[in-house]
Design a protein around this nucleic acid. Structure first.
Length: 151
DNA sequence: GCCAACGTTGGC
DNA sequence: GCCAACGTTGGC
């Protein structure tokens, strides 16, 4: 799950009450479908810092509330307002996430791209701008191992 | 339904 | 700040 640290960082999540927060503002249908249909309570996710000095996987989160309507879309004052979404027929969804841990070291995108084992990871595929991307069990384990090895 | 124009993302 | 890669929009 991507976030720009200048907007919302892993440390920001860790500082929240109960270290949980809602992952609002995703406005892409493919990502919406994952939020609404695929992500389940108890699932784990990597927190990725994008659009910053060193884009990197920095930590781990747990999904603590499955997909529900993104109410920011109903708020005309919000930057995430979308007049085409409404409570009767919500267009956008979000999940709640909980801080699990910070990786012992951040894993920079540059490093991830050098790993043959991660060649198929959506994050390193050319041109992928999705804000949420799937990680296979094997990729997940490999990334954890990388973090342990580089600690 | 096609596709050109335009806007956004995000690494570099 | 540049620009590649996409997604969205809207005319037709």
């Amino acid at each position: 799950m991507k976030s720009e640290p200048s907007v919302f960082s892993l440390d920001d999540l860790a500082a929240k009450a109960q270290q949980t927060y809602h992952w609002e503002g995703v406005r892409n249908y493919q990502a919406r479908n994952m939020l609404r249909d695929a992500m389940k309570v108890g699932d784990l996710a990597f927190f990725y810092h994008s659009n910053c000095a060193e884009p990197a996987i920095v930590g781990i989160m747990e999904i603590v509330k499955a997909g529900y309507p993104d109410f920011y879309a109903f708020d005309a004052e919000s930057v995430y307002f979308d007049p085409k979404s409404n409570p009767e027929n919500p267009r956008w969804f979000m999940v709640d996430v909980k801080f699990v841990q910070k990786l012992s070291v951040p894993l920079p995108l540059k490093m991830l791209k050098q790993q043959p084992e991660l060649a198929d990871l959506a994050l390193v595929r050319r041109g992928n701008r999705l804000s949420l991307m799937p990680v296979s069990a094997a990729q997940w384990q490999f990334i954890l191992k990388l973090a342990a090895d580089f600690a």
